[in-house]
């Protein structure tokens, strides 16, 4: 069987299993599956800019949080919007923020861009912590809706759409060629007519609004959010490690890394409770991936990038200011 057909059949099988999952498992495992789908989608959204364009964004949680807060505020007692009406509102607000933040920061590269985006997320944490309308540091509640199947299918739909868009735009269209070209050599990309500033901004906005949709579903799912729970830097950190583990700049890598790390997270939680042990595992995972699995899990199955780790080199090299980003 040709590899392409094998991948296609595997994909169909995965979709069928995921679609039937609510009938196969209890609510506890369904919640874990819902979380895994959310992280797979979030990691993919981070990978759009970090993996395909080579811009390491350490403030991606800002957009997850914006989506969450817009939904929480609009669904509150005063406005009482239906959940699905809040999604486009969150997308519009996030897109506006992404344009305002992206236009100046995307002129920066490497560590400067990473620091600027991290600072943006920190600003939003502080803002949400001191303003009354966001509920301050105490947070904000949403009307409870206790149907686990609804949230599972919402996350499943959002994740499926995220991967479909990523595949169509970054793997199968000339837009993807432009994005990857600017990642690999920005002056050369400009020299073949690519408006790199515009393409970077488009990628940044797409990446941001995708994260905001997951933030919106998350807020409705957990029924209560506060600044730390949706803007916190550890949310971005997890996305970064998931993508590195799965395979930077690959389509399926973020899904593999997202599911793997989230399941590890839940297993640790089951046995040891809410412990900092998970953070230690994240740190160790970064070191091990950089040293021994530079193309991530996905790279082990890819013929073209199997031995090089070049995308990681490019991204980390950019981050630390040129040169190889990884010991040879």
């Amino acid at each position: 069987m040709k590899p392409r057909w094998a991948v296609f059949l595997l994909l169909i099988a995965a979709i069928v299993v995921l679609a039937l999952l609510p009938m196969l498992v209890n609510n506890y495992w369904l919640r874990i599956a819902t979380g895994a789908l959310m992280w797979a989608g979030l990691a993919c959204s981070w990978n759009m800019l970090g993996g395909y364009a080579g811009y390491i964004n350490f403030g991606h949680s800002a957009f997850f949080g914006l989506g969450a807060y817009v939904t929480a505020l609009l669904m509150g007692d005063r406005l009482a919007w239906p959940f699905f009406a809040t999604l486009p509102a969150g997308i519009v607000v996030t897109a506006l923020f992404a344009i305002i933040i992206g236009a100046p920061t995307l002129r920066l590269r490497g560590a400067y861009f990473a620091i600027a985006t991290w600072a943006f997320a920190e600003v939003l944490i502080q803002f949400a912590s001191v303003m009354d309308f966001t509920g301050g540091i105490g947070g904000i509640g949403l009307p409870p809706f206790l149907d686990e199947r609804f949230f599972y299918f919402a996350m499943f739909g959002a994740a499926a759409l995220t991967y479909l868009i990523t595949w169509a735009l970054f793997e199968r269209s000339r837009f993807g060629l432009k994005v990857k070209a600017l990642r690999d050599h920005e002056p050369a990309a400009e020299a073949i007519g690519i408006n790199t500033s515009l393409v970077k901004l488009q990628t940044f906005v797409l990446s941001a609004v995708t994260a905001s949709v997951f933030g919106a579903i998350f807020a409705y799912w957990v029924t209560f959010i506060n600044p730390k729970s949706v803007f916190g830097g550890d949310i971005t950190d997890q996305m970064v490690v998931m993508v590195l583990l799965g395979g930077l700049g690959s389509l399926w890598g973020p899904a593999l890394g997202g599911v793997a790390l989230f399941v590890v997270n839940r297993i640790i939680w089951m046995y040891w409770g809410d412990t900092a042990f998970y953070i230690a595992i994240l740190g160790a995972a970064i070191v091990l991936v950089v040293l021994f699995l530079p193309n991530g899990i996905a790279g082990m199955f890819s013929r073209r990038v199997a031995k090089s780790g070049a995308v990681l080199d490019k991204a980390v090299g950019n981050l630390v200011g040129g040169g190889p980003g990884r010991p040879s």
């Binding site: 000339r174 070209a181 690999d184």
Partner: peptide
């Protein structure tokens, strides 16, 4: 070079715009 792209993709990128 667009290092992480194939030879064909390098050529197609030049026609993308």
């Amino acid at each position: 070079m667009f290092d992480n792209m194939s030879v064909t993709e390098n050529l197609l990128a030049a026609a993308a715009e």
